[in-house]
Design a protein around this nucleic acid. Structure first.
Length: 642
RNA sequence: GCCGGCUUAGCACAGUUGGUAGUGCGCCUGAUUUGUAAUCAGGGGGUCGGGGGUUCGAGUCCCUCAGCCGGCACCA
């Protein structure tokens, strides 16, 4: 006699066990059609699930986030179903739901081609149209392993073997096809209406590069065609803000074959780069950091001593010189800073001692990892190392994180995700040291009042770290800042200070970066703003345009005036129509276009137009200058247009 | 590094079953002196990513190297 409680609190009683499907139908035919699954006492189940006791029930439809997940999961099954029909020799492995879609990994004798993808998708549409019923059954583990082995599905058999004892093993079938799956799934394939296969890629079995490479097919699925279309449009929009494309269009930088993973900065890109450095210099100076500069190339022996060669060696560039010495090009700045610290005798009174450097480091990254400015082999860090005593860790961390967050706010990044990465497999130092370092960082993070997620085993080889991940305008995450406690390197490289009892002590070193890599940070800024950099960062903040040759002298003079006030302004005196010039500079995303015709030249003013096409009318030159300067100084918190 | 795809003029792209390269924009020259997202006309420009091979003949087919793109693995 199950009594079923619905989300609105209403109850329905049944005289015998009843399926989710039946309850939905009793509520209404529309809901019955829309039902994808049920939630019985908060547990997701199929619509065919039989309720045999009192329970709460919610019908899951495509309006629910969970309904969408089920659609995606079932579409992954539909994909595998189609693949098995077309390529019976292919073996299935796993097919999870991911953000915006799903994938399924197959083992097959040859890679799938784009033509295969079309065929598979066409077959999926046929299978969906046929509206095959989806059914579930359970099977004892041994039987299930046998079942899949007999079908030649060795990967599936392996997966089942690794399912913990006591867990139910369920199989889902539709038409002539059966897969191992936890479920739940849509009641029939006809519920899958809007999907598209996106791309083929290789992926290692169980994510391990020592294993076989499988064929992964990515797809996307949505409740309806409209959402699918919207998603595809969103992808196109994201492509338009790709920093590699904008970098070329706006003439900021380029890459070329001879220097894979290394940037050629053009004048405008370098202006942006220098603007960031100037900003950071000022912030750090105010926060008590002293800028230093250490050699790019140092004898490999130093890197041997620090442990870099052993733990980081495969990422390092080495160079042999005519004098037959081996040098390493620095992949990190820390050893250099320790060497500076070691000069002379340090007192505890000198601590905290904060060294910073815009150090250019080189790391030999695997070729497949390179990606525009986001992942390069030569990059500039806004690196700093703070030498302190062990009991200063918390206080210094609180200060440091405050600075870091205030800087992110200046760039409009309010959404910062923090990760705590603890001891990695490849590390130096005893477990006792790591225990202390991790505990100290944890306590400091608590004192700084930040929330974080734990990233097991992802720390640096010398110490645990907090990683600061920024979210850009379209929701992508980028790791930028880092804050690390290091109880290892200062000792390894022989750094000391004299404490209050005249004892020689080894300092603790904090490693930190805020932008992380200037290169990456610029890439993020470009994508975050879709190339429309805020005025304080824009390489060209305004362009002054004449209408005819008659105003050329006026334009030259005004441009000079604005430049003299430290603004990055250029002029465009070309013999072209204003419309033409406006279009060009608008496409270049120059924040302000300052038009000078006879009227403006006669009244010492400029007609101001924004890159968004807003006409601010004629404004006296000195007002333009003052407002621009204010906008720059406030980092966009005040705007010329308001 | 691994899997797949791609590489033709500065940029975006065409190039049919192998028969000695095209279009648009940009660029250059000239005309035009123009009021807020493209003025008109003419002109120049490519060892088809590098190397090797098959062929009477290769941008098109094969091998190889590199770079790039999408994933995977790895990471700021």
């Amino acid at each position: 006699m199950p009594v079923i409680t619905l989300p609105d609190g209403s109850q329905r009683s049944y005289s015998e066990p009843v399926t989710v499907e039946k309850v939905a139908a009793d509520i209404g035919p529309g809901l019955a059609r829309a039902a994808l699954a049920g939630k019985v006492d908060d547990r997701l189940v199929d619509t065919s699930y039989v309720i045999d006791r009192d329970a709460s029930l919610a019908i899951v439809t495509d309006k629910d986030p969970q309904g969408l997940e089920i659609i995606r999961h079932s579409t992954a099954h539909l994909l595998a179903h189609a693949v098995k029909q077309l390529y019976p020799d292919a073996q299935v492995t796993i097919g999870p739901v991911i953000e915006d879609g799903f994938y399924y990994d197959f083992s097959y004798s040859r890679p799938f081609t784009p033509e295969d993808l079309e065929k598979i998708e066409a077959r999926m549409r046929e299978l969906a149209k046929a509206d095959h019923k989806v059914h579930r059954r359970e099977m004892p583990r041994e039987e299930a392993v046998e079942f899949f082995k007999n079908q030649g599905e060795h990967y599936k058999a392996e997966i089942i073997a690794s399912i913990p004892d006591g867990e139910t093993i369920s199989l889902y079938g539709q038409d002539d096809w059966v897969d191992l799956c936890r479920g739940p799934h849509v009641p029939s394939t006809g519920k899958l209406r809007a999907f598209k296969l996106m791309k083929i890629a290789g992926a290692y079995w169980r994510g391990d590069s020592r294993n076989e490479m499988l064929q992964r097919i990515y797809g996307t699925a949505w409740p309806d065609e409209k959402s699918l279309k919207a998603y595809l449009t969103r992808l196109e929009e994201a492509e338009k803000r790709d920093h590699r494309r904008i970098g070329r269009e706006q003439d900021l930088f380029h890459f070329q074959e001879e220097a894979p993973g290394a940037v050629f900065w053009h004048p405008k890109g370098w202006t942006l780069f220098q603007t960031l450095i100037a900003y950071m210099r000022e912030k750090q100076r105010a926060a008590g950091y002293q800028e230093v500069n250490a050699p790019e190339i140092m004898d490999a022996e130093l890197w041997q001593l620090s442990g870099h060669l052993e733990k980081f060696g495969e990422n390092m560039f080495l160079t042999q010189t005519p004098d037959e010495r081996t040098y390493a090009i620095k992949p990190m700045n820390c050893p250099g800073h320790i060497e500076i610290f070691k000069q002379g005798l340090r007192s505890y009174r000198d601590l905290p001692l904060r060294y910073c450097e815009f150090g250019k480091v080189h790391r030999y990254e695997p070729s497949g990892a390179l990606h525009g400015l986001m992942r390069v082999r030569a990059f500039t860090q806004d690196d700093a190392h703070v030498f302190i005593t062990e009991d200063q860790i918390t206080e210094e961390t609180v200060r440091g994180i405050e600075l870091l967050m205030s800087i992110y706010r200046d760039f409009g990044f309010d959404d910062v995700l923090v990760k705590f990465s603890d001891r990695p497999e490849k590390r130096v130092g005893s477990d006792e040291i790591w225990d202390r370092a991790e505990a100290a960082l944890e306590e400091a993070a608590r004192a700084a009042g930040i929330e974080y997620i734990v990233n097991r085993g992802e720390g640096a080889f010398y110490g645990p770290k907090l990683e600061f991940v920024l979210k850009d305008a379209i929701g992508r995450e980028w790791q930028c800042g880092t804050w690390q406690v290091d109880l290892n390197l200062p000792g390894r490289l022989g750094a000391h200070y004299i404490d209050a009892q005249s004892e020689k002590r080894t300092p603790v070193m904090l490693h930190r970066a805020i932008f992380g890599s200037l290169e990456r940070f610029i890439g993020i800024l470009i994508e975050h703003h879709a190339g429309r950099l805020p005025t304080w960062l824009a390489p060209v903040q305004a362009v002054v345009l004449n209408i005819t040759d008659k105003q050329a002298d006026y334009v030259r003079q005004v441009t000079q005036t604005l430049q003299n006030q430290g603004l990055r302004v250029s002029s465009d005196l070309r013999n072209e129509k204003v419309g033409f010039k406006i279009r060009e500079h608008t496409l270049q995303r120059v924040p302000y276009l300052l038009v000078a015709g006879d009227r403006e030249a006669g009244s010492n003013s400029l007609a101001v137009r924004t890159r968004d096409g807003k006409d601010l009318g004629a404004i006296p030159v000195e007002t333009v200058a003052a407002k621009l300067a204010e906008e720059v100084a406030s980092r966009g918190r005040t705007r010329m247009e308001v």
